[in-house]
């Protein structure tokens, strides 16, 4: 188990290094770093100062060293627009994005698993057909358009829910989140639904496939032959088996949702890192773009690592590290 965690950790570091190199090459080797990282309205003196601090006059490998060194110290450049360290801007907005993403994920899981079970236990029934067609519909709906329709229906026509921004932040058990105020919740509902619908389809399909693949296995029949109740067979025997792929995929999807939050945040003007990214791209505020990419990739790699460790906790074959 420990060996597994350590090996997995080293792998994560390796992926992080590879991505850092790719991002670095993207900025320094393909583009012109001076143009990308120095504000267009900087004076000649400022320009020279930045060139010196980034080592742009030095060979590429030395630039990479400087880049990595700075990155490790949390220095990912200063925003042209805000004139503040870009990393600080990212961390300021990260909680809003995490709150949105996690709420969306919880939506997807709470709805998706029961629907998937329902569908998988009665394959080819009318219920199954409706749920499955619905799920194809769900992932065919372009996320941004679906968000617009939510706004049109629930904000413009019905006027039930606010369409933009994040509500006031409340405090509960030392945590700060808009989940803890009524107005905050109201603001959160539409964006969270928007972000979760796509993943909902995935969770449904995954659960259904898992159920359908597990139900015909011998151990299910054996459990029946032992006189175990159908409920226990489904919720213990089958569920524990499908939990393994489910955790893996849901975990990985958390990362993809963080990235997809860009779309949701743009539509709902949610003040998270995704909106910051798009705004920065539009304003050519490249240090923030670079910082976003590095932060989100690190976050993503970290999530993958945690998922794999969790996975190994659920699967005894991995946990005991002696799969034969």
């Amino acid at each position: 188990m420990t060996v597994f965690v350590i090996r997995r950790f080293l792998q994560s570091i390796a992926v992080l290094v590879v991505t850092a190199v790719i991002v670095f090459l993207g900025i320094y080797a393909i583009g012109d770093p001076a143009e990308m990282l120095i504000s267009p309205d900087a004076s000649q003196a400022e320009r020279a100062q930045v060139v010196a601090s980034l080592g742009l006059d030095k060979p590429l490998w030395e630039q990479f060293f400087t880049f990595t060194w700075n990155a490790l110290h949390g220095d990912l450049g200063r925003s042209f627009v805000f004139n503040r360290p870009s990393i600080a801007l990212i961390f300021e907005r990260l909680p809003a994005t995490l709150e949105l993403t996690l709420t969306g994920l919880v939506f997807a899981i709470l709805l998706g698993i029961p629907l998937g079970l329902l569908s998988g236990l009665k394959p080819n029934s009318a219920t199954d057909e409706v749920i499955m067609t619905g799920s194809i519909f769900g992932f065919s709906l372009p996320s941004f358009w679906q968000g617009m329709m939510l706004i049109m229906i629930f904000s413009v026509w019905l006027g039930w829910l606010p369409s933009t921004g994040r509500g006031p932040v409340g405090e509960f058990l030392g945590l700060h989140s808009s989940l803890f105020t009524l107005d905050g919740l109201k603001h959160l509902i539409l964006p969270a639904i928007n972000l979760s619908l796509f993943k909902l389809s995935l969770v449904i399909r995954l659960t259904r496939t898992g159920v359908r693949e597990t139900m015909p296995l011998d151990f299910v029949k054996f459990a029946r032959a032992k006189g175990i109740s159908e409920r226990r067979i489904v919720f213990v025997h089958v569920f524990k088996n499908i939990l393994i792929p489910l955790i893996t995929v849901i975990g990985l999807e958390l990362g993809s949702m963080l990235a997809f939050a860009v779309v949701t945040e743009t539509i709902f003007a949610w003040p998270g890192i995704g909106k910051l990214l798009i705004d920065s791209i539009m304003r050519l505020d490249r240090p923030v773009v670079v910082a976003y990419l590095l932060v989100i990739v690190s976050l993503f790699i970290f999530i993958n690592f945690v998922v794999d460790v969790l996975y190994s906790l659920v699967d005894p074959r991995v946990r005991l590290g002696d799969a034969s």
């Binding site: 583009g31 990985l252 993809s256 990235a259 860009v262 990214l277 773009v289 989100i296 990739v297 993503f300």
Partner: peptide, 14 residues
């Protein structure tokens, strides 16, 4: 290992 949208975002952002 990386979500489609993230890779596309990275690429087009750069």
């Amino acid at each position: 290992g990386f979500p489609t949208i993230l890779v596309a975002l990275m690429l087009l952002a750069l």
